[in-house]
Amino acid sequence: MLADRVSLGMSEATVIDQSRDGRVQRFHEQILPHLTPLYRAALRLVSTSADAEDLVQETCLRAFQALDQLKDPAAAKAWVFAVLRSVSLRHFEREAGSIVAPVELSEARPLPQAPSFTNAAADSPLQRALIEEVRAATLRLPRPYREAIVMAHVAGFSYREMSQILEIPVGTVMSRLFRARRMLRDALSDTAPAPSKLVS
């Protein structure tokens, strides 16, 4: 307790130094390991790598400033992604005039039979092209749906964690994911190469 520190005669400078060093160490241990997931998520929330880097940098700085609020180190990833979400909302606020128009929702249509991605490898040019299409289609989603896709597929959060990060009920998480995936299927079925071309 602060009063204890003062009453024990610990110098003010020592208290400050210990507090600062401890925060820096915690930042290295609890926040920096999530840098790449944060960057991957940011790349899918904003359209350019420069914006993504700015978003992540501001997120990390804010996380550092507020690190004392993180009580449970096990929750560090969800916590810092909540910070990212907050920072990204401000970004969208500033860029409000340039947000891409929402994708219209239509009846579900099947995707072309794509090569297997279950091993998460993109070996051929066609596979890489298709993945580029996925990225582009994700970026065209309206923000709430894009957030849901990013939190589920890029960050790998559960519905409950997403509910806390996005500050919406679990049922809304499920419906947003459902609609987002339908929009992606629609977008990809319009742009993906013909099935026969994908057999490499």
Partner: peptide
Amino acid sequence: VSLHGMLTADAIRDEAP
């Protein structure tokens, strides 16, 4: 599964500079 696979394949690209 195909959509999930493509999203996953996209998700693991890109390292933080």
